[in-house]
Design a binder for these strands. Structure first.
Lengths: 336, 336
DNA sequence: GTGAAAGCGCTAACAA
DNA sequence: TTGTTAGCGCTTTCAC
């Protein structure tokens, strides 16, 4: 890499002259500016990012901590974050907590050494189970703002981007009950431990209970379970099932494939829908009706909020929570 | 963040004394070391990463350029890279090229300003189609080593981690022909434009041609096609189909679901298998037989290779190509 | 209009 | 054993 020093030497001017010329300072003579810029162009000069960061005590880099990159939703949020951050002139350093509290803490510490200006993260499963939040608070008090998305820690005072999980399942369940006249709606979830999983379940529960005081019918699947087996057994046990709402994409896809496999007609005999993305819906026949979370939008919002805060750090503004509403994309896996 | 300066002031010693004490230099007196370390501990001192990078002209950061983070295989490789890099004390800055040549070039340029010590990347689709490689060569000649994985540019002299794509389909096709006695094997691909897609197709072709000079039967799907419709039509047109090899996970899953949907018995009437991961195989009933690419291993290898090279930059070693062999994980979607 | 110098936080050669 | 100094690459104030 060429440095200002080298350019200065070759041009027989001082380093500061070169610096000013390249930064279009009014101080420098027209002719000099031209000479400097030409040589800089020739050598493909770019200011050294590290030196700049040190000088200005800001890195223009965001630390992103993702619990699980293999989760399609989270990957898509990451995509949204990356794109928005890049557009706004920021880089992202990605850490994967792998749902582990320990790794989450480490990542936070590791990057809080001047590597990044702030964080965007979704809380790890273990962290949510143990309900630990000190590491977040500590980071924030060090002057590194955090934006949480999707899985958030409610007791941490920071910006948040969330989904209307409760409303989404509440409304959808009501729709199945009222508009389609479904009587036996089950809720299937692989994410019972997560804040969002709980919210989704509550939305479903409320709608069911409100409807002639019916009993909720919930299947919770654990990570180590054989996903397919569990769902098949559930279907066999509950012969009257006429609708399924899945809290996660895998449960949705497996449910619909299982229903078909057991000879049920979708959507005549049974409606199936779930939180999932477009790509997922291709993995079943008929396609799965999906509750879309607009992952990319969530990511973009999170990036915007963080960068906005970084640029107004002195103002000490109040924290905000942004809700990105889900939308129901209907396919032939439901009646109406 | 606390700095050496502040510690030094509080302890009434010089900055260098503090620095040396914290770095366990033999020079400093036992007592002083103790005092320094205690105060550093108290204040949670961590060396400023940016200053360190500037001083040592290395960032301990790797630039990773991924064409598409929503691709499960690529996401998994990223996971492998992140984990290995973290273990070896490196951070990763992630850029997503979104299969665009322009974005790939930009990312390379953007990070070649001292932000990273080297790159790990998989070539964008557009880049492979246009066969451009100058930006890679330029980066390498600037002293920033590159490790390419999966989709590589053969004419660029750099370390590579690849999959035995050709052999995988060649051997699998032969197995279907010889062991299962399949007569009409089709190859379905959504990635015809990629180097790996082409290799997979060639492996299949060779095996088919070698077998009594049969004709290959290939379905190529484009990004904008209706994936499900295309495959359904293909099945209907080729009634004699008794095996499908899919070059990508979506094609595999949709093929098997379509076959079942059309009333074919899997694997009695037809065997279906494809390049995919374990999670994907859950999305069909029966589960899809998968050619596993060991994405995490690929990622880990790439990280190791790059870091190894970074640490031996002075030696100017020859470039290496590492082949990570696929393995066939059989399920009930094939006979033997 | 141009340049010298200080300083961001750190390490390391050298001096004391 | 400890401290001084220079320097990594850059910006910016202040002097010329």
């Amino acid at each position: 890499m060429v440095t200002l020093k080298q350019l200065a030497k070759e041009l027989n001017v001082s380093i500061s002259t070169v610096s000013k010329a390249l930064n279009n300072s009014e101080e420098i003579g027209e002719e000099t500016v031209k000479r400097v810029k030409e040589l800089a162009e020739l050598y493909n000069y770019t200011p050294n990012k590290v030196a700049l960061s040190l000088k200005q005590s800001k890195t223009k880099t965001i630390g992103v901590i993702i619990p699980n990159i293999l989760n399609h939703f989270l990957a898509k949020v990451l995509f949204g974050i990356e794109r928005e951050a890049t557009n706004l002139g920021y880089n992202i350093i990605t850490c994967i907590s792998n749902e582990s509290l320990e790794k989450e803490k480490e990542s936070l510490l590791l990057l809080a050494n001047g590597s990044v200006d702030g964080f965007i993260l979704s809380v790890a499963e273990e962290t949510q189970i143990k309900n630990e939040i000190d590491h977040f608070k500590k980071t924030i008090s060090q002057g590194l703002p955090i934006v949480m998305f999707d899985r958030v820690a409610h007791d941490v005072l920071c910006d948040k981007v969330i989904v209307d999980d409760f409303d989404a399942t509440y409304n959808t369940t009501k729709k199945l009950l009222d508009e389609e006249g479904r009587k036996n709606i089950a809720f299937i979830s692989n994410i019972g431990e997560l804040s969002v999983g709980k919210l989704r379940e509550r939305g479903y529960n409320k709608a069911i209970l409100e409807h002639n005081n019916q009993e909720p019918l919930v299947l919770k699947i654990k990570k180590k379970d054989d996903h397919q087996k569990k769902i098949k057994a559930f279907f066999k046990k509950n012969k009257k099932l006429d609708a399924v709402i899945a809290a996660d994409s895998s449960s949705g896809i497996i449910s619909i494939n299982t229903a078909v496999n057991l000879g049920l007609k979708v959507p005549k005999d049974i409606s199936v829908l779930g939180f999932a993305s477009k790509a997922d819906s291709n993995h079943s026949l008929p396609r799965l009706t999906t509750i879309r979370q607009h992952a990319k939008v969530i990511g973009a919002n999170a990036a915007q909020m963080l960068i906005d805060r970084l640029q107004k750090m002195h103002l000490n503004e109040d924290v905000k929570t942004k809700i990105v509403k889900t939308s129901l994309v209907k396919t032939k896996s439901m009646l109406k």
